[in-house]
Simulated assay, not measured.
Amino acid sequence: MNTTGLDPRGPRFAAVLTTIVFVVVLLTGSGWLALAQAVIFAIGAYDPRRTPYGLIYRHLVAPRLAPPAEREDPAPVRFAQTVGLVFTVVTVAGYLSGATVLGIVFAAFALVAAFLNGFFGLCLGCEAYLLIRRLRAA
């Protein structure tokens, strides 16, 4: 078993929390909450294990679960966090500059991506990372 990679349940847990954050952002129009999420994505782009969500998972949730059957490469998750950061920065810019429609559209995109990952295990950013790697190798 690969013990150096990520427990795949951690990013899914983080995606559920991110889904909740984006629902609140869309309901309240809070660019400041979106900015807080952008900071979390920025940390995750460096190391997903160091985000507040990753720390909550590692210290409060994971000890109550059986060890993961396998681990995953953190590189696709870091890429997905970077994509989330870009979408969230546009969300923040939209809400805080008064371009509310822009904020809503990008928050909705981020919500869909987080929801798909959190509830179905489909990480769009991870899939994009793998596709880019395949295209570069071709």
Rank of each mutant, 00 (worst) to 15 (best):
V90N: 04
F87T: 09
P63F: 02
S30C: 11
V105I: 11
F13M: 03
L65E: 12
L135C: 02
F13T: 05
L135Q: 01
L6H: 04
L6D: 14
Y95I: 00
V16I: 11
F109R: 02
P74W: 01
R136N: 08
I20T: 10
F87A: 15
I104K: 13
W32V: 07
P48V: 05
E127S: 08
L26E: 09
V86L: 11
L85H: 03
V16N: 06
G98Y: 13
A113F: 15
T88M: 04
R50H: 06
A15T: 02
A34P: 12
G118R: 00
V24R: 09
A137D: 05
G103R: 01
A99S: 13
A38Y: 05
V21Q: 15
P76H: 05
P74I: 00
V101A: 09
T18R: 05
F120C: 01
T51H: 06
L96W: 02
H59Q: 11
Y53P: 04
P67D: 08
F87Y: 14
V112T: 15
L135F: 05
T82K: 09
E70K: 14
L26W: 11
T51G: 09
Y95T: 08
F106E: 10
T100F: 06
L102F: 15
R12Y: 11
A66W: 08
Y57A: 01
L26T: 13
L55E: 10
V16P: 03
R58H: 14
A62F: 00
V101K: 01
C123E: 10
L65D: 08
A42K: 00
A107D: 08
R9H: 07
L33W: 07
L124P: 04
D7F: 06
L124A: 15
R58K: 15
G125L: 04
T4Q: 13
V112D: 07
L130E: 13
L60A: 12
V92R: 12
G125I: 05
V24F: 12
V21W: 10
R134I: 09
G98S: 07
R12P: 01
Y57I: 00
G125D: 15
V101C: 03
R9N: 11
T28R: 14
I132D: 09
V92Y: 09
L26G: 15
R49I: 00
V112C: 07
L111T: 12
A114Y: 05
P74A: 03
A66L: 13
L102V: 08
L85M: 08
A80F: 04
A128G: 09
A99D: 07
T3D: 13
Q37F: 07
V23G: 04
L111G: 14
A128S: 12
V21T: 13
Q37S: 15
T4Y: 09
G54F: 03
F22L: 06
Y46W: 13
F41H: 04
A66G: 13
I56E: 10
